[in-house]
Amino acid sequence: MEAIRFKDLTYIYQANSVMAQPALTKITTTFKQGATTAIIGHTGSGKSTLMQLIDGLILPTAGSITLGDLTITNETPVKELGKLRRLVGYVFQFPEKQLFAESVLDDVKFGPLNQGLSDEEAQERAQAALEQLNFPLELLKHSPFELSGGQQRRVAIAGVLAMHPEILILDEPTVGLDPEGQAELLTLVRDLQAQGLTILIVTHQMEIVAQLADEVMVLNHGQLAFQGSSQDLFLQPDLLADNHLRLPKAIQLATNLGQRGITWDGLPLTTAQLADQIIQMWGDQDE
């Protein structure tokens, strides 16, 4: 099952003017339902534009996007886009910037209330989302501006999760978090994966790609440079170099050791997998 389909998707900023700037050119692809796709590419490759298109914040200049039974083209009326935003939850970069309400609870309730839910339902959903994010519930009535940066981010993400999206976009979710906060966030993404959400994660951290992504999409100058499993991507050093990407540390180490004569049983993607294989070899040697 596919969750999203792009057909010849093109987006040009300020189209029909002298300052026209193509951001995405003729992208045709699909995203699987319930899978996690990492979208990578260097700055200005069109990642955020693509995410905004999926959320209906901008309309494609040409081509179409299909989500479920909704098809979005250049002619789609603005009113239709509301339906799209019900399906898609978008966690922007530095989402804590969007907090505005008087209390944490009010802020998280904002999205569900906009969806037309009753106050009780919104409250239930808000509390459930905050609990899922390990947010200390005694702070519910506090102002979001009194919280620490990490807590603020959790409130902002809860605000999106409370809307129960089917597709979740995370734009650089770990940027600016301390290592502990990053680890917590990755655990959360795993929980959401287990719940069957379709997740799109935009990131520059190749470790996240290796650990979380079922599929990787590489954008380069608004064009699709690669789509496939992360294993396939990491086995192509030329492709990585062309797109200014580097290997995750575990794979880098494995590759270096590989050059010194060690053979791996499949490429270890994470430090844990690397350690497992080394321990295995150690055991074999002892025998």
């Binding site: 914040l57 978008y90 910037k97 904002f110 999205g111 906009n114 809307m163």
Partner: peptide
């Protein structure tokens, strides 16, 4: 910043 915040709130259902 205004554009970003507006987009973020639009994606939370503000029209």
């Amino acid at each position: 910043e205004v554009t970003t915040i507006m987009n973020a709130q639009r994606s939370r259902g503000v029209n």
